[in-house]
Design a protein around this nucleic acid. Sequence first.
DNA 1: GTGAAAGCGCTAACAT
DNA 2: ATGTTAGCGCTTTCAC
Lengths: 342, 342
Amino acid sequence: MYSMTMSAVPGPRGPVTRKDVARFAGVSTAVVSYVVNGGPKRVAPATEAKVQDAIRRLGYRPNAAARALKLGSSETIGLVIPDNSNPFFSLLAHAVEEAAAERGYALVLTNSDGNVAKERRNVRNLAARQVDGVIVSSVLMEPGAADFESAEVPVVLLNHSAEAPGFNSVGVDLVAGARAAVEHLIGHGHTRIALAMGTNTGNYYDGREEGWLQALAGAGLPEGPIVRTPFTREGGYAAGKRLLAGAERPTAIFATSDLQAVGILRALHEAGLSVPKDMALASFDGSAEAEYSWPPLTTVRQPAKAMAEAAVNALIGTGRGNTPEHLIFPADLQVRQSCGCP
Amino acid sequence: MYSMTMSAVPGPRGPVTRKDVARFAGVSTAVVSYVVNGGPKRVAPATEAKVQDAIRRLGYRPNAAARALKLGSSETIGLVIPDNSNPFFSLLAHAVEEAAAERGYALVLTNSDGNVAKERRNVRNLAARQVDGVIVSSVLMEPGAADFESAEVPVVLLNHSAEAPGFNSVGVDLVAGARAAVEHLIGHGHTRIALAMGTNTGNYYDGREEGWLQALAGAGLPEGPIVRTPFTREGGYAAGKRLLAGAERPTAIFATSDLQAVGILRALHEAGLSVPKDMALASFDGSAEAEYSWPPLTTVRQPAKAMAEAAVNALIGTGRGNTPEHLIFPADLQVRQSCGCP
DNA sequence: GTGAAAGCGCTAACAT
DNA sequence: ATGTTAGCGCTTTCAC
């Protein structure tokens, strides 16, 4: 017995292909395919072992590009979000990646940075890359169907609560969620409840405004002040300052995102106000950041994981011809201290 | 002139290929290629116009899988991070996506969830998908070169400050950054400065501990208490509580991540302590969350964008044979209020 | 300036 | 149970 450092593997020449494996194992390329894919034909155990051995010895890994070309599917999906550094979207992206991975799909991530043109560009680019579908999640968007239909790729709208004709979409019940939060605030005895409303481009109506309205109306309360501001920490900060400076200062604020609430919190702290004593606060999203603010934020939790799974299923399970579904998830109120609860 | 709703585009049959375009434009497929790729041969302006027109009319989009198969490159890179919902990593991922997109590359994102096995699996999976390279960013990892070399794909380590033989890597000067933060705390007159040290798996030594040590030694101060805890909000919270309960309570804490500092902040608030009066705080990362905590955190900012660009360059620009580079970026102290500054 | 054709690595229908 | 082979859509060399 002689030892050799290099076994009979091919030398420094390029990547190992299925042909190399076939030759090494002394079988045909078809058999290698059957072994690798577990079908569509059965292979004798002995042969299979030989092939597996050859695969291992040669360090063979199938070429996904070739497979994608042949099969017309790359087992890859695209995701377009406004901003992966926004905690809500990063959470969503993580959940989508996980859901996709569970089904054997990889995730190509792109940020649109809140830019409609970039969003469209990303969708097209993804389509050109032969992804099997694209999940688009945008606060900004009111999908002109025309925007994506030319993309020739299945699209599902994630985080999209307004019904979008012609598209699969999954969203959250904004109206009910917001209403629950505002009603909770009302339960604490507040009667002047402001709304820090995130600004969407497009003219579609955000259910959170409606929910706030409904809760107030339901309790026979007057409409509190409303300030429109971006869905960001900075936006919230500005909104907070404006609300404090206003004539009829509210005693509670409902913010349409956790990030805004965090900004409002800063404005409140700077003004020396105590939360929730001097000003109560509730928000929307349920991101981790809300749990560790001071005081911890009472917030409407979006079921990101479930939504992500639904979006991936809608995309992958889609028979293409199916009539578009519009999935709405309930959002539950996560009660912490910013609202006045102990 | 007659109007038609449907122009002479192919009917409901499958995707348009280069062949269809060629036929429609009355040229060969080679010419279509030349036009699409702007080379390698020149095409007569008139012909080019015809082809462009055909492309537009038919809505042709090149098949990336075929291109990747032929060229052996998918113009795609993979990214492996521990957790995209961690603000530092989501920021990094965003920056990597941007840097890749600028060079025409798409980004496949995967989370390892702090799991070494999953990390390896992800790298292999990405390699099988014919990505042109993989960027791995892991707090966990001490790359056993063997782990990735079998992946047969270029790997660059991002967010990796210890030198890893055989790998390109880009990281930040942990020692200097930490030292700067601790020295700043010392400048405020503190003499008992604790360290909330993030726990890495593997036994590699984290420079932040060294930096803390150096700053204390340099000022002739005794070693403060040290508590080892995960790089998370929860970890920080636990560390904060332990530090408060300890015998020799420090007057300042240096935390190795913003997330930990946020957790510590919560422990401090719950104990009714005022920051920075009763306890000063500084941390590491420079994420957006640090800016909007209360009080805003003094933190060592990692240049995520620059690091991401460097990593992408190292991966794409890499001639494969080049000797591995080890890039270390400086991290600058972002002074806010948690340290005691006004 | 344009075209014909080989072949990238893989799958699966069709032979054997 | 295993082998042969056409062809997925593209790029590019080589001929014209």
